[in-house]
Design a protein around this nucleic acid. Structure first.
Lengths: 259, 259
DNA sequence: CGCAATGTTGATAACAATCAAGCTCGGTGG
DNA sequence: CCACCGAGCTTGATTGTTATCAACATTGCG
């Protein structure tokens, strides 16, 4: 069923060159890492030119995921990591009772599936928040390549380690912050990540619903809504539906208390 | 100051052979991984004999840490990972306001410092909960060794990935569980980890204070104390100070709801 | 022994959840 | 074009869980 999504290719935006590259995987793909606008922030960002060329060869395959569709499901066999190329994702765990819990949001340049390396199965599901595209990175090949490319091995370890740091930051957030602090921290985190991608740092679109934000932050959607209203009243932000502008970043940072 | 702790060696339990091994690092140390009781659960657990011998050579150095002393501080330059050999640790983040937040507890066989790989500095501090000993694993040498040892590289990635899974589990816990669910989950996690080490699964000592448990779980120490009393009243556990016995594991699991 | 650290228990208060009503926007069909 | 619908969002009233404040008990240690 995963394949179905990948192969139906519901969008016509995909250039023909990509398709041919998939058919002949050793041909240089149209959207090689070396020409990708994310090359500065993505997995291969520390590689030299010749290394980058080799790396390109294992990541020619792309996959489009429609808004609301799953990239992979919890429990599926792990074979590949995915790099978000465009769009955005949420990762969700599901309890037996059927409640969802969102463990992360993922912007372009970020990797999906890192938690699956340890258990050979995806621990969570990954759902596109908007029509999105990912690069498929077959893990066995990646590991092999890392054996002969110190910079790649190092970068891979760095990325995993970075995820740990990020998760621990979120644990601080969930474990010891009030609702207003959580929301501030969330907005600041999005801001920082948008900036890293070269987008405006204090004006962006929330791709997720209030309910998803609340789920992620351990709050109800009502509390999220109320807090956003209050932030607006206090001049910290300007919200208009999904669009948000941070008007007073320092104020938000004071709230979080510089964790 | 880190060195001071390491070098004063406040305990006399260290066998002379270890000291001589440190002086001649290529000699086989007294407590080589191959003869360590943790070899089945620690970093080198998937290595073959010859690989294990090489690995031993980079991890001869041990370090004792007295109860309450720091193994490393947040912000210090990252050079080594540490494997807990005996005892236990907590990892703590500190805010500018001086509040501590505990992000994890670490039992023998578990690695410390993984979050530091990404930034070259330790993101958190690590404090011994009891008199403890760690193996020092110089990271640069570890990386080099992993370049020629596929099993080691794989295991390292697995361990990092496992940490991510664990952290995400904790995020679920902090983000969407009630106080009683958090405490149940915490006790079950400790139980599982003790079992993995070959200890009794449902009778163990809480090495941390109620306050530390609460800090970790995002609760106050009073709430932790109350919950433990209630669990005891309900026959789920028997507590006597730091010693705890899980009398009804299924009951505890029902509480958590099988996340 | 007495002090400090740790833990228990109770009373009260605060924060966020829940329940409930109504609003806004975008899309669809008459 | 407008009416209607539904998903997503906002706001209000009330409840419940957990934090806070406080007193006291227990333990371990100098």
């Amino acid at each position: 069923m995963m394949q179905t999504i990948a192969m139906t290719r519901p969008f016509s935006m995909m250039p023909a060159t990509v398709r041919s590259a998939a058919a002949a995987p050793h041909a240089k793909p149209a959207v090689a890492c070396s020409s990708c606008c994310l090359k500065g922030v993505c997995l291969p960002c520390d590689l030299g030119q010749s290394e980058l060329d080799s790396f390109d060869e294992i990541t020619t395959a792309k996959r489009r995921v429609a808004r609301g569709a799953s990239l992979y499901h919890s429990g599926e066999r792990f074979e590949s990591l995915f790099a978000v190329r465009s769009g955005s994702f949420k990762t969700v765990g599901v309890s037996r009772q059927g409640d969802e819990k969102i463990t992360g949001f993922h912007l372009p340049g970020e990797l999906l599936g890192l938690e699956a390396i340890s258990s050979d199965r995806y621990g969570y599901g990954s759902v596109a928040l908007e029509d999105s595209e990912v690069c498929i990175i077959p893990f066995t090949q990646l590991e092999q390549m890392a054996m002969s490319m110190p910079a790649l091995q190092h970068q891979l370890l760095r990325l995993l380690s970075g995820d740990i740091s990020r998760d621990q930051g979120l644990m601080l957030l969930l474990g010891s912050m009030s609702a207003e602090q959580r929301l501030s921290a969330f907005l600041l985190s999005l801001s920082r990540r948008h900036k890293r991608l070269g987008f405006a740092a204090n004006r962006f679109v929330l791709r997720m619903t209030r309910e998803e934000i609340g789920n992620y932050l351990g709050l109800t959607l009502e509390t999220v809504s109320r807090m956003l209203s209050r932030f607006q009243r206090e001049g910290l932000v300007a919200v208009q539906q999904r669009e948000i502008e941070l008007k007073n970043v320092d104020g938000l940072m004071d709230m979080v208390g510089h964790w």
